[in-house]
Design a protein around this nucleic acid. Sequence first.
DNA 1: GCGATGTATGAAGGGATTGTGAAGATGAAA
DNA 2: TTTCATCTTCACAATCCCTTCATACATCGC
Lengths: 227, 227
Amino acid sequence: MSKTILVVDDEERLVSLVKTYLEREGFRVATAKNGRQALFIAREQKPDLIILDLMMPEMDGYEFMRVHRKERETPIIMLTAKIEDGDKVLGLELGADDYVAKPFSPRELMARVRAVLRRTGQSAPQGEMLRVGEVVLDRGLHSVKVSGSLIDLTPSEFDLLAVLMASPGRAYSRYDLLDQIQGAVYEGYERTIDVHIKNLRKKIEADPRKPRYIETVYGVGYRFAPE
Amino acid sequence: MSKTILVVDDEERLVSLVKTYLEREGFRVATAKNGRQALFIAREQKPDLIILDLMMPEMDGYEFMRVHRKERETPIIMLTAKIEDGDKVLGLELGADDYVAKPFSPRELMARVRAVLRRTGQSAPQGEMLRVGEVVLDRGLHSVKVSGSLIDLTPSEFDLLAVLMASPGRAYSRYDLLDQIQGAVYEGYERTIDVHIKNLRKKIEADPRKPRYIETVYGVGYRFAPE
DNA sequence: GCGATGTATGAAGGGATTGTGAAGATGAAA
DNA sequence: TTTCATCTTCACAATCCCTTCATACATCGC
């Protein structure tokens, strides 16, 4: 039974970005454009956590919190462009559990979501397990096992593997992969992916020279071998 | 139900090149020569994504974005000759989702289109599967199966096969094929196609001497056998 | 059949793509 | 601050592809 998270922001692009990331972590996601909508959805779906922008038309984040807090204790993470102390204090007084300043990295937001859920006594979702051949990746536990033994991966390596394993057989371009692990606007050098792949292979392949799982698709990118 | 993409640029050759590639991926494509036209078409067709040149007569890309953003949230990929930070920042502030510096490879642009669509929550077009007889080509997965087993193809071979399979029974000249796999600028030797065909046959035909799928049309070129 | 033209194929050079180790940059924790 | 792990970049090596060419084979018209 996966947790539901309500994302409230008037910027559609930001909402869908956050939604993508949350879903990849195994959460169900509801969205709203303003406080009024959010209130309606919160009553109906009873989310386990709310990610809330402060600046919105119709009914802003403060107003929403004031009303919502009278009804439920749902943990709330505030998003704010202003990083002024005043905002922070006011938000925390109203009952926010954490706040994240824009612009933020998706990875940071995910970390805070997990932290808040843990702190408020709810467990992270038991991430659906991805299993291909002898490789088992557990999103919730954030762990990877190969042939039964636990493997240590860096955050980038884990994300990369999770993306590849989510669609075995599908070839991803370096750009796609960079986009998925960095989020938002691509800034870097595509070849960075090569290095992550090399390190991943060293950790999960029996013979990194002849990879059985992470295959190279010449001229395209990489893919996880379908069974 | 395929996605519509609006391509806006005053260079006709570039527009038709991009159009070709997008259509091959299964998108519907609308085009415009300047911001004014683009605005009109955007209102009428409501595209799912816009690929926008910055430098144009009549109404440039910045101006277009300013006006368009007030009406819709359509994701936008900017094309720009200048890779100056100023441009990038301004473009991103105005709401571009990504930017690509000219000159770019069609393949890179396609990757970004898919990435932006995914990021903004729209799915890429259903990698329309081409299936003829025992041969199955999946554009989304970038994979080819013959009688159930996965076949490794080089980029040229894959493109070639995709073109042929898109219209079984239709004979293409070597010139046509070269044009499709090299992207517009035809410079090469038509016989190169013969070699790619030979290699393709070796990979997908049971008996390359008596091809069942890729037939030679004497004096014309090649075609994929209709069922 | 015969020549002329078109196609098939193997091999090789050059070019493009990918693999890899190491150094520098970044950022978090102590 | 220093330390440490990670991420990124870079240079060079290894590998794979594309193109070209030479030669063999097939098809056509006469």
